[in-house]
Simulated scan of single mutants.
Amino acid sequence: MKYLIYAGILGFSCWGISEVIEIFSGYTPSVYYLTASYHFFAGFGIWALHKIQSAKNNLLSQIGAVIILITYLGLTYFPIQVMNSGLSISEFLAGNTLYKLVGGIWFLGMMLFGISILKTKFYPFWTGIIFILGTIFFVSILPLTGSSLLLNLSNLLFSISVLYLLTLGMKNLKGDYLKRKINGSFE
């Protein structure tokens, strides 16, 4: 389990770093490669978050985590394709509708997982709200702007929030997670 959390921490750290680089330097190859790394590793971190809160048998969490893991893996090569095309993200998506479909499925998974955070009450309530609002904001702003400082900052906030969840998950693995699972007391 801890290796899944490490993968998530690596993935969301790559995303946060890519956002900072993008703010200061624009779209450089490092931004694209870090984003590809994020896509590869982040889904495993979401799966870890699901497994940690799964002692409450939350089907929304399981469905959302599976969808997110599969779509993140499917999107791993997307940033590299955008970089090699020389197009903006919006221009690339206009000619590659399959990625729009994958993005829509990803959106569904993120919403289900965010709702599961609220429902399970294992993680702080505000993290579920950030999860849902961050996803909505990302999906609504990206097609309009392709990229903007506001989008970079919201992505950075979202990345930091998931990193917080992952560190809580690591803490639960080290501390009272097993006791809580055995006793069934998650409040």
Rank of each mutant, 00 (worst) to 15 (best):
T97N: 15
L150F: 15
T71P: 01
Y77W: 14
Y99M: 08
T145M: 07
I63H: 07
P124D: 10
L133W: 11
T76I: 12
E91L: 10
L157S: 14
L168Q: 13
S154N: 12
L151Y: 00
I141L: 15
V162K: 03
I46D: 00
I9W: 01
V20D: 08
F122D: 01
I17K: 06
T120W: 04
Y38K: 09
F12G: 00
L151W: 05
K119I: 13
I141H: 10
L157F: 15
I80P: 01
G64W: 05
G184P: 03
T71M: 08
G104E: 04
S154A: 15
L73Y: 11
V20G: 09
L4K: 06
M83Q: 14
Y99N: 04
T28M: 02
N155Q: 12
F122M: 06
W15D: 10
A55D: 12
N155E: 09
L150M: 13
I117M: 10
V82G: 00
M111Y: 05
G64I: 00
L168D: 04
L178C: 07
G128V: 05
G175F: 00
Y164V: 05
K181A: 14
K119C: 13
N152G: 09
L75G: 01
A55W: 04
Q81N: 12
P79Y: 03
L178W: 11
Y99H: 07
I160R: 15
T35R: 03
I23T: 11
P143Y: 00
I80K: 02
F44T: 07
L4Q: 07
G95A: 05
L151P: 00
A36K: 02
L49N: 05
Q81V: 11
S88A: 10
L153N: 10
S140C: 14
V139H: 13
I89P: 00
S161F: 03
F12M: 08
G104F: 01
T71Y: 01
A36N: 05
P79Q: 08
F107G: 08
A94S: 14
G134D: 08
I67C: 06
N58L: 14
N152H: 09
T127K: 08
S30F: 11
G95T: 01
G8T: 05
S116A: 11
G104T: 01
S54T: 07
S13N: 07
S140P: 04
G134Y: 08
S85H: 03
Q62E: 13
I21G: 04
I160F: 14
A36S: 15
L75I: 04
L101T: 13
F158Y: 13
L73M: 12
S140Q: 11
G114P: 09
S88K: 04
L49I: 15
V139F: 12
N96V: 06
F137D: 06
L150R: 07
I70T: 11
I80H: 04
L60Y: 15
A55T: 14
L59G: 12
S116R: 02
L93C: 00
L151C: 07
I129R: 03
I129Y: 10
K181N: 10
M83P: 04
K174A: 02
A65S: 11
K51L: 10
P124Y: 12
L178S: 11
G8Y: 00
W126Q: 14
R180Q: 12
I117N: 03
I182P: 02
I89C: 00
G114F: 02
Q81G: 11
F78A: 07
